[in-house]
């Protein structure tokens, strides 16, 4: 009887993977992505809000005598927040810091105070002076839009369900009050 030939399998053998086709694909893909990539991500400032906040804004619009919050920006004196409740007017000020720049942490704190006192208000009227740079206007709008501290939230009522909830949004609706002024 003939002995059966046993095929020897070497389990310890190594082989080299041919990476050349993979590299060829990558070499083609990288320039395509390099051309179409956006390295500077651009955003727009808009009021894209949770539904609850949008409903609250609509409610505020229905109010015949709403509380209004106006922000006056001056390059020399800083920020003045004017709160008008019917006949009563309250003015809060935040001066420039030692570097003669807008004191953003204090502005944020002041907006939080105003929001705590008037949780129903979502709209602010911006009135920057003509010489205030665009960068500063955007920075102040940023401070007014949302609370930077995730622990500081503001009460809001869901108009559909009637459930009380909270939001980080303070004054997301910005209107330039002096746009039509001469």
């Amino acid at each position: 009887m003939r002995a059966r030939k046993k095929i020897k399998i070497n389990h310890n053998s190594e082989f080299e993977l041919d990476l050349a086709p993979l590299l060829a694909v990558m070499v083609k893909l990288v320039p395509v992505l390099l051309v179409s990539s956006a390295f500077v991500q651009m955003m727009i400032i808009e009021t894209d809000l949770p539904q609850v906040v949008q409903q609250a804004i609509e409610e505020q619009k229905k109010d015949p005598k709403p509380t209004s919050v106006a922000v006056e920006m001056s390059k020399k004196t800083g920020i003045k927040i004017v709160i008008t409740e019917g006949e009563k007017q309250t003015i809060e000020t935040v001066s420039l810091n030692a570097k003669q720049e807008y004191d953003l942490p204090n502005i944020q704190a002041k907006f939080q105070e105003v929001k705590k006192a008037h949780p129903e208000v979502f709209k602010i009227e911006m009135n920057p002076d003509a010489d205030v740079p665009y960068k500063d206007v955007v920075q102040v709008m940023d401070e007014a839009r949302k609370s930077r501290n995730n622990d500081i939230k503001f009460p809001i009522k869901d108009q559909k369900t009637g459930v009380d909830t909270t939001t980080l949004y303070m004054f997301p609706e910005v209107v330039f009050g002096n746009m039509m002024d001469g």
């Binding site: 651009m42 955003m43 727009i44 400032i45 665009y134 955007v138 920075q139 940023d142 839009r145």
Partner: peptide, 10 residues
């Protein structure tokens, strides 16, 4: 352009 913490796409 100035930078902002807005999260809305153009």
């Amino acid at each position: 352009l100035p930078s902002s913490n807005s999260e809305k796409n153009p």
